[in-house]
């Protein structure tokens, strides 16, 4: 009974709008199916971000897309193998089976994703502004990631350039 009234008073969407929505979804789904390299890059980035918080089994992770009624959904199945210590870990390295985080957004357009990763090009993921040369050259950054597990994201402040004491660095990143 309720259903009947619901149907009676529910505003009917003109079929043109329905067509537009169906078209949007079907093309979304088509384009995802046609872009395996983009999906691969997305999966890679996803694993890196998640592995900052939990330890994961990257080799057995699976990312798929499902075309549902009214939406296209991304489904990620990523086995978790352990929990990271409370302090947020440094960018993970390849040693735990997960690649380092390198933002792929710029690369997605060119679809050139198979290039080997270059550690010296590694930039802090959330830094939208270009990395300043003095920082890249600073001894703190030149050290391979993972060798100083307690070090946090570098700041672009002048203080960071001169390798400030750990306490100060900790405060700086806490604001981030």
């Amino acid at each position: 009974m309720f259903d009947f009234f619901n149907k009676l008073f529910k505003p009917v969407q003109p079929s043109g709008a329905t067509a537009k929505e169906r078209l949007r979804l079907v093309l979304l789904s088509d384009h995802l199916a046609l872009a395996p390299d983009v999906i691969e890059a997305l999966k890679r980035d996803l694993l890196v971000v998640i592995s900052r918080y939990v330890e994961i089994d990257g080799a057995n992770a699976d990312v798929t897309f499902e075309h549902r009624e009214g939406e296209v959904a991304m489904l990620a199945s990523i086995p978790i193998t352990g929990v990271r210590p409370r302090t947020r870990a440094e960018s993970p390295t390849e040693s735990n089976g997960v690649p380092r985080f390198e933002p792929q957004t710029a690369v997605l357009e060119s679809r050139a994703l198979d290039e080997p990763q270059q550690p010296e090009l590694l930039a802090p993921p959330q830094d939208a502004a270009p990395v300043q040369p003095p920082i890249t050259a600073s001894p703190a950054v030149a050290a391979a990631p993972g060798t100083a597990p307690r070090r946090r994201r570098r700041r672009k402040s002048a203080a960071a350039k001169h390798a400030p004491p750990p306490a100060k660095q900790f405060n700086a990143s806490a604001q981030a």
């Binding site: 078209l23 949007r24 093309l27």
Partner: peptide, 17 residues
């Protein structure tokens, strides 16, 4: 006339895609 009534994709709908 169908586009005006919302019963057909418009040129903008088609080319928006």
């Amino acid at each position: 006339q169908l586009v005006r009534k919302g019963k057909m994709l418009s040129v903008d709908d088609v080319n928006g895609i």
